[in-house]
């Protein structure tokens, strides 16, 4: 059975006859599904065909070998093909494998074991294909948590465990009129000169699979500190800040350069900041207030309680009218 999804304006094709798998994928992907007849005009970014088990590629060179949540992921390639193998974390036994063209446009995979494992593997393959195939389509899969407010979205970046989701949760609780757009892997695209963030079927541990888009207000890297302040970065620091938060294949020079071009566009359009903060209420208040009062703060300057104290700690924001259209297309 073939399903068509549109994610960040890009068309992906899911092809499997495994009913149980389709049911398991439905909560994530259903919001993005369209009738085939409605998307014939949209070129296909990639198709992933679920097939019987096939032989691994002969003479594939291992490019990368990394831990991927509950499994091992081995990325290898030949002159014309890419192969991604997922292995059981403990036994290192192959549990699923995908082979695709070097542009990631056509892919096939086999899956094994329980429905949970099959769903995990197929979903991971789709996410990797999306991240890699979209690199030269002015689209980036970010590692970030995103909230939207008054028609602008704010992406919180940080290494895993630093508190991206915690910071989003603080905004949702303490800043009026906020909504969660995605909690782990939003897509960001440059569309008609604007920087737009999109919900995706990938959102970490939070089931926030929303087919919504919103113009990006700022990228904010979260750092743990005892006090709270926000600092805007200059262009080169901004580039260095965003680069490690984008998924992609670093060893494919063409795609990696295309990704760099897109990041350069983001940096020239949208502020990138470092937020130093606690995991408590004042973090959301200082961050949202500083970003909201952005006018007049130039690149490289600080803003917040530590530097240029503009607003006192724990300032209470006036209630704002709810903006119904804030994050919807």
């Amino acid at each position: 059975m073939i399903k068509h999804c549109i994610i960040a304006d890009l068309h992906i094709v899911i092809d499997t006859d495994d009913r149980e798998l389709l049911n398991a994928l439905a909560p994530r992907y259903a919001p993005f599904c369209h009738r085939a007849s409605d998307v014939t005009e949209v070129p296909v970014l990639f198709a992933l065909h679920h097939t019987e088990r096939f032989e691994p590629l002969a003479n594939a060179k291992v490019m990368s070998d990394f831990e991927c949540q509950e499994s091992w992921c081995i990325y290898s390639e030949t002159d014309t093909m890419v192969q991604i193998t997922l292995q059981d974390f403990h036994t290192r036994e192959d549990i699923a494998q995908m082979q695709c063209s070097k542009d990631f446009g056509e892919a096939r995979c086999w899956l094994s074991r329980s429905i949970n494992v099959r769903e995990y593997c197929y979903n991971n393959f789709l996410m990797m294909l999306f991240a890699f195939a979209s690199m030269d389509k002015q689209t980036l899969l970010f590692h970030a948590s995103v909230v939207a407010r008054e028609g602008k979205a704010y992406l919180f970046l940080a290494k895993s465990g630093t508190g991206k989701s915690t910071h989003s949760t603080l905004w949702l609780k303490h800043v009026p009129g906020c909504e969660l757009l995605n909690d782990d892997n939003p897509a960001v695209g440059v569309r008609d000169g604007k920087v737009i963030v999109y919900g995706t079927p990938w959102s970490g541990k939070t089931a926030c699979y929303r087919d919504v888009r919103c113009e990006v207000g700022a990228f904010v890297r979260i750092n743990r500190e005892k006090t709270c302040y926000l600092k805007r970065l200059v262009s080169v620091q901004s580039f260095a800040c965003l680069l490690p938060s984008c998924s992609g294949v670093k060893w494919d020079k063409r795609l990696y350069r295309a990704q760099g071009d897109t990041i350069t566009m983001l940096v020239s359009c949208v502020p990138v900041c470092e937020m130093y903060c606690t995991p408590y209420r004042e973090a959301a208040v200082v961050c949202s207030t500083s970003l909201g009062a952005w006018d007049g703060v130039s690149e490289g300057e600080g803003f917040g309680v530590n530097e240029r104290s503009m607003k006192p700690y724990g300032v209470t924001l006036p209630p704002e009218p709810q903006d119904q259209s804030s994050a919807n297309a």
């Binding site: 262009s235 080169v236 901004s238 580039f239 670093k250 060893w251 990696y256 350069r257 760099g260 940096v267």
Partner: peptide
């Protein structure tokens, strides 16, 4: 990058 020259590791 916005008028600044930057070396980025590749490959």
């Amino acid at each position: 990058v916005c008028g600044e020259k930057v070396l980025v590791p590749e490959g």
